[in-house]
Amino acid sequence: MFGRDLDDAEAWVADWSAAVSARAEQARQLAARVADLTGAATGGHGLIEVRVDSTGALIALRLDDRVTGWPAARIEHEIMATLRRAQATLTGRVTEIVASTVGVDTETGRAVLTGYERRFPAVPGDGDGERRR
């Protein structure tokens, strides 16, 4: 009497457990790949280069000697604009990682993407020819 129902229940639990394990592995892969992520951009007509880690923190800054002839306010502006462009590259790269791991339509995927989109929005009017990587 209970044999078939019990077999079906055990199969359902096994399938559910496997699905949960698969999602956990995808989330682990997402976290590991995002943690290794960096973004980069150049500014000031190629005289400034910045690199950021996955949290958007500055990890490298290179200034060409020619920026020493600029007013300090221009140097500050160019560094900050270049930093924002480097940070903005993270959102696109995280979108690719989310799509290939947990999926952009999952709750986890949407949460991760929303966080990056809020912290590192696209830079409006960023058609100035500067490089982003």
Rank of each mutant, 00 (worst) to 15 (best):
V52F: 03
P71E: 13
V20S: 09
A14N: 09
D15V: 08
R85S: 08
R66I: 06
H45T: 11
A88P: 03
V20G: 03
V98E: 07
A122Y: 04
V20W: 04
A31N: 10
T91L: 00
W16A: 15
G44H: 13
R84T: 13
T101W: 02
P124Y: 03
A86I: 04
G3Y: 06
T38K: 10
L6D: 06
R28N: 07
W70S: 11
R62E: 14
L6I: 15
I75L: 14
R119N: 13
A111S: 13
P124H: 01
R133M: 10
A60H: 14
V94F: 00
V102S: 03
R33M: 08
V52G: 02
D8R: 15
D126W: 02
G127R: 13
H77Q: 15
E49L: 13
I59Y: 07
A72W: 09
V102P: 00
G69K: 11
Q29W: 07
G115D: 14
S100M: 05
E107L: 08
A41Y: 00
L61W: 02
R4G: 09
D65L: 11
A111G: 03
V67F: 02
I59A: 12
M80F: 14
L30P: 01
L90H: 01
V13R: 15
A24K: 12
A88E: 06
V123Q: 06
R66N: 06
E10F: 11
G39H: 04
V20C: 08
L61R: 01
G109I: 03
I48M: 02
V102K: 03
L58P: 04
G109T: 04
R132N: 08
I75E: 00
L47Q: 11
T108S: 12
S21L: 14
A11F: 00
V112Y: 00
P124T: 05
T38E: 10
M80N: 14
A73Y: 09
T114F: 09
A81H: 12
E25A: 15
S100D: 15
R4T: 13
V34R: 06
G46K: 01
V123H: 01
R84L: 07
R85A: 13
G46D: 04
R23E: 12
D5G: 13
G103Y: 05
R133V: 14
G3I: 12
A11V: 03
R33A: 06
R118N: 13
A19S: 14
V102T: 10
G46A: 11
D36S: 15
G39S: 06
D7V: 11
Q87V: 02
E96S: 15
A72D: 12
A18I: 04
T91E: 09
T91G: 07
D36F: 08
G127P: 05
S54A: 15
A11M: 06
Q29N: 11
A88D: 01
V52Y: 03
R132A: 12
T42W: 02
V112G: 01
R51V: 13
V98T: 04
H45I: 07
G103D: 00
E25C: 00
V112P: 04
P124F: 01
D128R: 10
